[in-house]
Design a protein around this nucleic acid. Structure first.
Ligand SMILES: [Zn+2]
Ligand SMILES: [Zn+2]
Ligand SMILES: [Zn+2]
Ligand SMILES: [Zn+2]
Lengths: 137, 137
DNA sequence: CCCAATTTTGACAATCGTTGTCAGTTTTCA
DNA sequence: TGAAAACTGACAACGATTGTCAAAATTGGG
C-alpha cells in the first residue's frame, strides 16, 4: 500500500494566485481558465495565461476547486461551498449551478464496482438541464 | 412501441464506413478515433483520419455507439450490447467495460433536477476503476 | 448500363485548449 | 541579507479535433 500524502503544492503567496483566488471567490458559476484569464486582463491585472492554467490545475489537484468538463471539451472550475464529495446540477445555457449530494448514488457506484471486482473506484456524475430562469424568465 | 424519429444521416454504404463498423463490431472496449484509425492502417485498409472522425461522430449522433470522454480528454467509442440508456464501469488501464443500468440513479437525477426547477435534463455518469485482471494479473 | 445529382472522401491546413520550456523574477527563511 | 527554491510569462509545441474543397464514389432514374 502506498500512503499518499496530500500534495501541498501551493507553497508561496503570489499576487497572481491571489488574483485567481479572488475571481474564483466572487464567481458563482463554473468558469474556464481562458475566461478567468480574460476577466483578469479586463481588470488590468496582468497574469500570464499559463499561470492561470497552472494555478487552477493545482487548486483542483488539492481539491480546493471542483472541475467540470463541458460538452465543448473545456475544463471549468468552481470554488464550491459544500466541502465533501458532491455533484452538480448545471444549467446548459447560463451555467447556474446547484451543488447536490447523493449518498445513494455513491453507494450504488461502489457496490456495482465491487460486484464486478473493480477496485480503486471513482466516478464522474454531472446533471445538465435548463434552469428556471433560462427556461422562461 | 414509441416512434422516435432518428436523424438518419448515414445514407450511403461505403467501404470506409463498413471498415469502421467492422472494427467497432469486433472491439469489446472503448476505442478512440485515432486508435481505430491506426488499426485500419495496420490492416492495410486505407481510410482517412477525418473520415474515421466523421463516421464515429455520426454513429454517436444516431445513438449507434456510446461515447466516453477519457481523463485525457479524448473521446472513445463503443458499440454496446445493451440497447436502452445505461452507464459504464471502465477499467482505467485496459478499458475493460461493463455495461450497467441504474434505474435508481435515473430517478434520482430527474427528481433532483425537478426539485430545483431544471428542465430538459440529461446527465453523464461513468464509473472508473481497476479491473480484476489489471489489479493483479 | 449510363449519367447526373448528391454525398462522401482524404490530404492538408487550421483551430483550440492545454502543456512544456527556460531565463528572469519573486518568495521564503535561515 | 543572501541564497536556494519556487514561481512567472512569453512563446513554442502539442494532440485531438474540425474545416476546406477538389476529386471520387454512390445512388436512383432513364
Ligand atoms: Zn462542487
Ligand atoms: Zn440558466
Ligand atoms: Zn454503453
Ligand atoms: Zn483492466
Amino acid at each position: 500500500m502506498s500512503l499518499e500524502q496530500q500534495p501541498v503544492k501551493e507553497h508561496r503567496r503570489t499576487r497572481q494566485r491571489a488574483a485567481v483566488d479572488e475571481v474564483l471567490e466572487e464567481t458563482e458559476d463554473f468558469i474556464s481558465a481562458q475566461d478567468l484569464h480574460a476577466i483578469l486582463r479586463s481588470r488590468g491585472m496582468s497574469v500570464g495565461l499559463a499561470t492561470v492554467y497552472r494555478t487552477l490545475q493545482t487548486l483542483a489537484d488539492n481539491g480546493d476547486v471542483d472541475v467540470l468538463h463541458t460538452a465543448g471539451g473545456e475544463a471549468a472550475y468552481r470554488r464550491c461551498a459544500r466541502e465533501g464529495h458532491h455533484h452538480h446540477l448545471v444549467c446548459r445555457s447560463c451555467k447556474a449551478t446547484v451543488e447536490v449530494a447523493g449518498p445513494a448514488v455513491e453507494r450504488w457506484t461502489s457496490s456495482v464496482a465491487k460486484e464486478h471486482g473493480y477496485t480503486d473506484v471513482a466516478h464522474t456524475l454531472e446533471i445538465f438541464g435548463t434552469c428556471p430562469r433560462c427556461a422562461q424568465g
